[in-house]
Amino acid sequence: MNKTYIILASVLVLLGIGLVFLKANTNKDELNPEKLLTEINENTRYISTDELAKRIIESDPSVQLIDVRPAKEASKFMLQGAINIPLADLLNEDSQAVFGQDGKDFIFYSNDDIFANQAWTITRRLGIKNLHVLKGGLNYWAETILQPVAPAATEPQEAFDLYQARLGASQFFTGATLEVKKSEPLEKIDLKPKTKTKQVEGGC
């Protein structure tokens, strides 16, 4: 009688110990390599500088910019509303708290888009959603938004429309009225006192 109990109990205890040593599935949300590869090749993570500029100007509350450059570079210049999370600090508790926010579009950017893509791959693997990468990074931002280049005369109308939009954005972000065609000063108009001229009145 006692023996059976002991055998049963030891079997269960052994199984229990076995379960402890099983590899823990640490992160249920973790994307497996196949899924991650599919998303990498989809290229839907990119957001263009024009779209970003538009969203910042409209002060879209869902935009959460994340600057992944080293703190030294980021301290000199960051995009409006961005927070600096250097690649090395990506898995910190503080950073994880940032990604915990609901209803945000997290947009990584760096000078180019290499670091941003690296950050994206790691965080996406962890199963974090709504992650984006600024296409071309700050270098492209400077070329398209801060200092837009006028299209050649032969380019289609869309290029000019885009250029106009970029000029507007440029003014917003540089806070300057540069590059805008100087409007000629209004001609001064002499104020002349009204002189009533005699009007011909017709009589009856």
């Binding site: 000199k76 210049f77 000078n111 400077a142 801060l146 972000f173 806070g175």
Partner: peptide
């Protein structure tokens, strides 16, 4: 230039206010 800044953004962009 991979990941080297091509421009002085701070100078162009001023502060972003």
């Amino acid at each position: 230039s991979a990941e080297t800044p091509k421009y002085d953004y701070a100078a162009i962009g001023k502060s972003m206010t």
